[in-house]
Amino acid sequence: MQAFTTLDGLVVPLDRANVDTDAIIPKQFLKSIKRAGFGPNLFDEWRYLDHGEPGMDPATRRPNPEFVLNFPRYKGASVLLARDNFGCGSSREHAPWALEDYGIRAIIAPSYADIFYNNCFKNGILPIVLDAAVVDRLFRECEASEGYQLKVDLDKQTVTTPGGEVLKFDVDGGRKHRLLNGLDDIGLTLLQADKIKAYEERRKLEAPWLFNA
């Protein structure tokens, strides 16, 4: 996994609450057996006027000029500003894969759905929670000022606005450590192999029906 340390990125505002993972990456693209290449289909049904299917050349598609990702001023954005309950719905990790493939490395929202939030950390994306009133203000600032960028520092747990305002955010210590260092979860877990084995030995006696190979 790629590490996340700091980011100074252009912000794109997606002003909708309850954005679900079906909207982030529609189901027809979930048929892929690969992890990469979902970026062109991020928010497919909102982003294009024609119906998207896997394998289509994005250059031949009809972009929806009214969708915020298609505004020229937000081209190259790496910070997504969002509303409450972002990423609700299905557990598809294709959602963070699509965001990451598109170039989004940090999300700022008042709240996230649990599974999506967790999936972001497995893919080098930092989902930042800020107070709803603060997020609301960032939306106004971003919309008012073309080229609006935010600086994110994971180690210091801060977001800095162009005006120099420093906003603190919380993040779980373990997740922060893994994201800062781009660590592989499985490798870390296997350091506990003795404890897993001991647990299994004990459970085989307590609950043998759980081991019915």
Binding site: S90, R92, I115, K122, D185, I186, T189, L190, Q192
Partner: peptide
Amino acid sequence: FGIGTSEVEHVLATQCLWQK
């Protein structure tokens, strides 16, 4: 509970998950 694909791989490899 539902998990993402990274955790599917994690459970296959370790039979465990990190949770709070």
